[in-house]
Amino acid sequence: MFINQLFKLNGRKYHKGNIVATALALATLIFVFSASYVLAGSNVTVTRTFNPSADAAITVNAGDDNGFETTPTNAYADGPGGAAVDTNSGSNSNAVATGTATDKHNFYNYTLTSIPTGSTINGISVRADISVDSLTGSPFTAVRLSWDGGTSWTPEKQTTLTATAETTYTYGDSADTWGRTWSASELTDANFRVQVINGDTAANSLRDFSLDWLPVSITFTAPWDSYSDSARTTISDSFVTYGTTVYMKGTGYATGTYNVAYYDANPTGGGQKTATDSGISVAGDGILNSQYLLNTDPNAFSGTWHALVQPTGATAFPTPYDTAVASPDTYALLGNDAFSVQQAAIPEFPTVSAAIVVSGSCFGLYFWMRKRLKFKMQGAN
């Protein structure tokens, strides 16, 4: 009603169109600027998968005391080449996984030391690709973990096998810590063990188990953060000022050299790589430092940025962020930190440019309509 009254007071036939054009321009500006301020920042979890390179059968009070007696090394990797075989598994009644009648076999040397010490271990999962000669007696495979070389063990996780053909069974997940708090120092080759236990619920069923692959996936949050000062004393997840430098710091990284890739908030691919800081040396103190001046790339997008870490020599991080985090093992990802970058920190944001273009077009339409109206009114007079 207000618009109609204003229309009548002014006596202009197309005044409502002028108001619509102006409102559209303002709405566009509000939308673009509001959208660019939906920001977030935090450490991002990383999941890496590792293979064993050593094994040992348990030879005392463990069924027939030979574990996977045939080619246990076949469980080190996926693919053709056969499987580790436990023939006529166990002895007498082997229905209790941790009892003395079940065959047991340890796998270790997963080379987990690339995970930075001080990382939060969020979860551990074990994949077991298993086949069995028969489902008679409800054969099962259980898995448990050790953090001290096999002296102590987590409670076992047990699964009844559902097919004779090779099937993938998963024990644990990305949020399962197996009933304890882990430290990265316990994930060394000297300490970390995966024990596979085979059994069934029938007396002397003597099942044959074949294990094709036994990888371990570790989900962790690395001590890798963004700071607002060069001394790296103040952690900051939000950067708002033009000319600001993001200072990154990681701790507990193994001695060597690393690359850090910075990704902006470009909606294409979840973000686009804007820069790579290569060949960063880490000495015995385990400190990894990197930095990036936010106004370096005028075409970068505001929003949630990421800084990814990998060792030098790994496959270079790809341009799209989503591709990098979808294949953490391909790129040997060892840290992922998210931080927010607002428009003021970058000189020429595409969102601002878009807003200017759209609003300019709307105002151009507004003045064109006014000019047209003026000519029509003069013609009427």
Rank of each mutant, 00 (worst) to 15 (best):
Q5H: 06
K13L: 07
H15T: 03
H15Y: 11
N18R: 14
L26K: 00
A27M: 14
A27N: 07
F31H: 09
V32T: 14
A35C: 13
N43M: 03
R48H: 05
N51A: 13
S53M: 06
A56E: 09
A57C: 04
I58W: 01
I58F: 00
N66V: 07
F68Q: 11
E69A: 15
N74D: 05
A75V: 10
Y76Q: 04
A77K: 10
A77M: 07
P80H: 02
V85D: 08
D86G: 10
N88Q: 12
S89D: 15
V96P: 08
A101S: 12
T102F: 01
D103P: 12
F107G: 10
Y110T: 10
T113Y: 03
I115D: 00
G118C: 13
T120A: 13
T120E: 10
T120Q: 14
I121C: 04
G123Q: 04
I130W: 04
L135K: 14
L135T: 13
L145S: 11
L145W: 09
G149Q: 08
T151H: 01
E156D: 11
K157L: 07
K157Q: 15
Q158A: 06
T159H: 09
L161M: 10
E166A: 13
T167R: 06
Y171E: 12
A175K: 13
D176L: 00
D176W: 02
T177K: 07
T177A: 05
W178I: 05
T181S: 14
S183Y: 12
A184K: 10
L187P: 14
T188G: 13
D189M: 08
N191F: 06
R193I: 15
V196M: 12
V196N: 02
G199L: 06
D200N: 15
S205N: 11
S210T: 13
L211V: 14
D212C: 00
L214Y: 00
V216K: 07
S217L: 02
F220I: 11
F220R: 11
S230T: 08
A231C: 02
S238G: 04
V240P: 00
Y242N: 09
G243H: 11
T244S: 09
T245I: 10
Y247Q: 00
A254W: 02
T255V: 14
G256F: 01
Y258F: 04
N266T: 15
N266R: 05
N266F: 03
G271Y: 03
T274Q: 06
L293H: 11
L294V: 08
N295V: 01
A300W: 02
A300H: 05
A300L: 01
F301R: 14
S302H: 09
S302D: 13
G303R: 08
Q310W: 09
G313P: 08
T319F: 04
T323H: 03
A324C: 06
G335F: 03
G335D: 07
F339Q: 07
S340V: 02
Q342R: 05
Q342I: 00
F349E: 08
T351E: 15
T351M: 09
T351R: 15
V357P: 01
V358A: 14
S361T: 12
R370Y: 06
K374C: 01
F375G: 08
